[in-house]
Computed example of a mutant assay.
Amino acid sequence: MSKTVIEVRDLTKRYGEINAVRGVSFSVKAGITIGLLGGNGAGKTTTITMMLGLLEPSGGSVSILGCDMATDRYRALPYMNFSSPYVDLPHRLTVRENLRIYAGLYSVPEPNARIAEMAEQLHMTEFLNRPSGKLSAGQKTRVALAKALINKPRVLLLDEPTASL
């Protein structure tokens, strides 16, 4: 039986009279992929931001890998990662330099080998030494995905993962 790795209960986010997220609940077992579906403004990005512990919910709770993301998120963060088209990497650094920084933040063993592996898998070898600001939209999306996978996360949150691909 798979262990539950994500538990979201009655998650709510209000901005004054606006309900950005209203009573969202779901759980995810290890090895399962789910998608949050909804139109523009449905609260998908807000939900993910609360799941990461970057935005405080108005109500409800999020537990990831057994950690309450409101009070104990730093215990879960080394085993998580995320990708979003709304987060840009430093433009002056090369793709390789950006990935090295994230590998260092996550204490990835043998970072150069991991970067080479990601570059091959995501067809990024030809632009590894190019500044991130000089990439096409599709290339930026692949680099963001490589950044999200660099630490081989147990929980991966993807916000609009196919944007520009």
Rank of each mutant, 00 (worst) to 15 (best):
S25I: 11
Y15I: 11
G104V: 05
P153A: 01
L36C: 05
T49I: 07
A20F: 06
V143A: 00
K152Y: 06
S83G: 13
A163K: 15
K134E: 12
L65W: 02
V28L: 13
R154K: 15
N40I: 04
D10A: 12
Y86R: 15
G43C: 12
K147N: 10
N81H: 05
V62I: 12
G60Y: 10
L93V: 09
R73H: 10
E56P: 15
N129H: 14
A119M: 11
G138W: 00
Y15P: 02
T47P: 11
T125D: 13
L105D: 07
V143K: 01
S2W: 10
T45C: 03
F82D: 03
P85E: 02
V8K: 09
R130H: 12
I150E: 00
R96L: 10
M69S: 03
K134Y: 06
S132V: 12
N40L: 00
S2V: 14
A42T: 10
G66H: 07
K44M: 05
I64D: 01
S61G: 08
A148L: 05
V108R: 12
E117A: 10
G104R: 06
V21C: 10
T45V: 00
D88V: 11
V28F: 03
L122E: 00
I64E: 05
R73L: 04
A20V: 06
N151W: 08
A70L: 13
V155F: 01
Y74V: 11
T125V: 15
M124P: 06
I150H: 01
K140C: 02
A30V: 08
R154W: 12
N19Y: 13
N98G: 13
K3G: 14
P85I: 01
K147D: 03
E126N: 14
T46L: 07
S164V: 00
Y106Q: 14
G31Y: 04
V95E: 01
L156C: 08
A76I: 02
G60Q: 09
L89C: 02
I115C: 06
S84P: 07
S27M: 10
V108W: 00
R73T: 04
G38A: 08
T33Y: 01
P111E: 04
G59F: 09
F82G: 01
L122P: 06
Y102G: 03
N19I: 13
E117C: 08
V87L: 14
V5W: 03
A42M: 06
V95R: 10
L122H: 07
M50L: 12
S107Q: 15
V143W: 00
T46I: 09
A20Q: 07
L55K: 13
P78S: 02
G43W: 10
L93A: 09
A30Y: 11
L37M: 12
L158T: 09
V87P: 05
I115Q: 07
A76R: 03
G23E: 15
S132P: 06
S58F: 11
